Simulated scan of single mutants.
Amino acid sequence: MIPARGSVLDGRFELLGRLATGGMGEVWRARDLEGENEVAVKVLRVEFAGQQQFLDRFAAEARNAQGLDHPGIARLHQHGEVDGLAYLAMELVDGEALSDLLRRRGTLTETETLDILQQSADALEIAHRAHVVHRDIKPGNILLTPGGRVRLIDFGISVGAGQQAITAPGMVMGTAQYLPPEQAMGNSATALGDIYALGVVAYECLAGRRPFTGGNQADIALAHVTETIPRLPDEVSDGVAHLITDMLAKDPAQRPATAGIVARRAADLRSRATSAPGHLPRRGGHQRRSDWTANRPRGVREATSRAPSEPQTRPSFVQQPPKTVASRNGVPRRVAIAVALGVVILVALVTVLALALGGLGESGGATNGVELKASIAMTDRDGTIERVG
């Protein structure tokens, strides 16, 4: 079966139009013929039909998402396989990605940022209690509805407790601009990594730029490990700055212990801030949801899952000058880490060559001349970085 407009999956989901295409899959707007409502359907690309490693990825996403019941997480309705093509049918959310809002407005107010932070952390707490780590928290995976609600989407590279590894040992998966330092060094993804990534998102909302950048994805990942967090704008209150700084601690043990703690701190700060000039007032003892949909283009509707490698525009800004940190043996820490990463990437390249010669491709496919393949992929399109360590 080749997915096309009018195709019906499993006799239930009629494909109406393609929303996004990526290296591994496509996302379609579809009609659920049983419920007569519209859904988002993520379908494996035809060229990967029947390939077990891709089927396993879809199955893992389904397992991790199906047990998450929270208004801040897009619901998974059904998953299945037709003629070797795995698919996921999900809630179609009427909303705008935070990444689009930031492109449109540049920065958000403290109240808006705290609202998004609180709701996102509440949703993450539910995932983490279910022992699911998202691994790809970023503005593009946070949807904002016209009613002021936040929805987390795309559990495509999430990992669950006891889940058998789909990727090679030591592989780092995520988006370089939001990659926790410990994952950049090849350590396993944990809930504390999601908290770090959400801290990067909050920083970006207030500063209008990400805290770390570089000439390529490896440089950006390295900056997360070695660079000092640039100071937030002076107008950011001390309490909010402290929360974000805590979330961005290099040592995971120094971050808030749970996403629930982040949500409570954000709620407390928002409660205290709502009476300040430029912030939304409290009404009837309840905090009003942020009106981030003002000036939003009409007719915007986002799928609940973005296809892998979906293009996203990244703002450009001046790279922070590197700081040299001496290690115990006198060798600058940045140099030591750079050498280590260089060895890792060399090993990855050898692995890629071997896999390519063997005809394997883990996240394969080509988009605009950038081939996402095997064990390492660094792109300038969406910042996704994969490497073997």
Score class of each variant (00 low, 15 high):
43 V>N: 01
186 G>W: 03
389 G>H: 12
327 S>D: 09
205 C>K: 05
35 G>N: 15
34 E>C: 11
325 V>D: 02
378 M>G: 09
107 T>K: 13
224 H>Y: 04
225 V>M: 14
389 G>S: 13
152 L>D: 03
105 R>W: 12
279 H>S: 14
330 G>M: 06
261 I>P: 01
115 D>F: 00
134 H>F: 12
16 L>C: 04
240 V>M: 09
138 K>R: 09
180 P>E: 05
211 P>T: 11
19 L>Q: 14
126 I>R: 15
187 N>Q: 14
17 G>Y: 03
276 A>M: 08
36 E>G: 09
170 G>C: 12
41 V>Y: 05
211 P>F: 10
281 P>I: 07
44 L>V: 05
315 P>N: 11
78 Q>H: 14
166 I>L: 15
209 R>P: 09
77 H>F: 15
310 E>A: 13
317 F>I: 12
2 I>L: 10
256 P>F: 02
330 G>R: 02
140 G>H: 06
387 R>W: 08
189 A>F: 02
169 P>V: 12
79 H>P: 01
250 K>E: 04
213 T>E: 09
231 R>V: 13
141 N>F: 10
180 P>I: 12
118 Q>V: 04
261 I>A: 12
190 T>F: 07
86 A>C: 09
319 Q>G: 11
375 S>G: 12
360 L>H: 14
327 S>E: 03
135 R>N: 09
131 H>A: 15
287 Q>A: 13
76 L>N: 01
190 T>K: 11
10 D>L: 01
270 R>Q: 05
208 G>F: 13
184 A>C: 03
379 T>Y: 04
223 A>H: 02
213 T>Q: 08
258 T>S: 07
93 V>E: 01
90 M>Q: 14
248 L>Y: 04
270 R>Y: 00
255 R>T: 00
149 R>L: 15
192 L>C: 05
126 I>D: 03
176 A>Q: 03
154 D>H: 04
215 G>Y: 07
288 R>W: 11
156 G>E: 13
186 G>E: 07
113 T>F: 03
319 Q>K: 15
48 F>E: 06
189 A>E: 00
160 G>Y: 06
380 D>Q: 12
41 V>N: 06
241 A>D: 10
57 R>L: 15
60 A>H: 11
137 I>R: 07
29 R>H: 09
111 T>M: 00
381 R>H: 14
158 S>F: 06
71 P>H: 09
262 V>Y: 01
72 G>S: 06
77 H>C: 10
53 Q>N: 08
370 V>H: 13
44 L>G: 02
351 T>C: 13
387 R>D: 03
106 G>W: 10
120 S>H: 01
218 A>I: 15
